[in-house]
């Protein structure tokens, strides 16, 4: 990302800092390849801010905790949709958040980089990556003194190549030129749809065998706002058993997906956060497409909109029930 945009972003953050409790952004993480959330409270903190292709996390996940206090947040296009959805669900008040947007050309998929240098995601211990740089269309990573360079598009997160909203859909400040939107035809779902139901079930059973029930997928999800009250850990009601079974694990994923029906903004954090690489984002992709087809609705675009499953209408405008024969 260009230095002038970084400079302008820091300037924008410093400008709003006196009016807010803190500004959520990104700073350096366990190694130069990975960013971590940065909670900026002073101008000195702002020096450590960095955005761009390595600024992967969706910081909207922290917003509901600040209810009643005013905060700033720096957002990519996808992050902004989470903020919008939270506002539309009244979980975040519009007047309590200052949104700073910038054009996003995509972020890296750390798991893809790890795989490209011959490591598993779980092998990336802190300090292993000595240097990481994005230069134009390439990404260079230095591990144990050895530098490898990849084309950026090869290590870009899958969600970015089909990103329809690379610029913040709602913002108070926008720094830089708007980035170009891409198309999403849900082509990635075709190979799963080609499977029979039995094959799909076997596929998921196999995937779920790896699940360690850490609930990172849930915790990374900006719209999973129940936190300590999640139905997954409740015995009253007792939806899930505590048994270590693939069925219970799959059951949770289905609950998660249905809770996100018509709400999910496709930020992909659930799948990114999964330490064992289960493609849990697929459930949401399916359900998002269904919400679009059934209700003509996409979450996180309009702060005034109400998600179709969170309202009661006698007649859904997109479902012509009375014309059914």
């Amino acid at each position: 990302m260009a230095d002038d945009i970084h400079g302008a972003l820091r300037e924008a953050i410093r400008t709003i800092l006196p009016d807010v409790e803190c500004v959520l952004g990104w700073g350096s993480g366990p190694d130069p390849l990975r960013s971590a959330p940065l909670f900026m409270k002073s101008p000195e903190d702002v020096e450590r801010f960095r955005a761009g292709e390595l600024a992967v996390n969706n910081l909207a996940v922290f917003l509901p905790e600040y209810a009643g206090r005013k905060v700033g947040i720096v957002v990519k296009g996808c992050d902004s949709r989470s903020v919008v959805q939270l506002i539309s669900e009244t979980l975040v008040k519009r007047e309590e958040v200052v949104i700073i947007g910038y054009p996003c050309r995509g972020v890296v998929d750390v798991a893809k980089i790890a795989a490209a240098i011959g490591l598993g995601n779980e092998d990336l211990e802190a300090g292993l990556v000595e240097r990481a740089e994005v230069n134009g269309d390439t990404v260079s990573v230095t591990v144990r003194g050895e530098t490898k360079t990849f084309p950026f598009k090869d290590v870009m997160a899958a969600k970015c190549s089909i990103c329809r909203y690379p610029n913040a859909v709602l913002h108070d400040v926008f720094i830089g030129e708007k980035a170009e939107a891409r198309e999403d035809s849900y082509a990635d779902l075709e190979k799963y749809e080609a499977m029979s139901l039995e094959e799909r079930f076997r596929f998921w059973e196999k995937e779920m065998e790896r699940c360690i029930r850490c609930y990172a997928c849930r915790n990374a999800c900006p719209l999973c706002v129940c936190r300590d009250h999640c139905v997954a850990s409740s015995r009253e009601p007792h939806w899930l058993s505590q048994a270590d079974s693939t069925r219970d694990k799959l059951f949770f994923q289905l609950i998660h997906a249905t809770h996100l029906a018509g709400r999910c903004t496709g930020c992909g954090e659930c799948a990114r956060a999964c330490p064992v690489g289960i493609p849990v984002g697929l459930f949401k992709r399916f359900i998002n497409r269904a919400a679009g087809q059934l209700f003509g609705f996409q979450g996180g675009l309009d702060p005034e909109a109400v998600s179709p499953l969170q309202r009661f209408l006698v007649d859904e405008p997109t479902i012509k029930e009375k014309e059914w024969k």
């Binding site: 009250h229 999640c230 409740s234 009601p237 007792h238």
Partner: peptide, 23 residues
């Protein structure tokens, strides 16, 4: 029961048709 089905954490229960009873 619409609220019951919508509440993500099961905090609203419909008396005589609680989640546990249906489960």
């Amino acid at each position: 029961g619409l609220c019951n089905a919508t509440c993500p954490q099961g905090a609203i229960q419909l008396s005589h048709f609680t989640d546990n009873q249906v489960l």
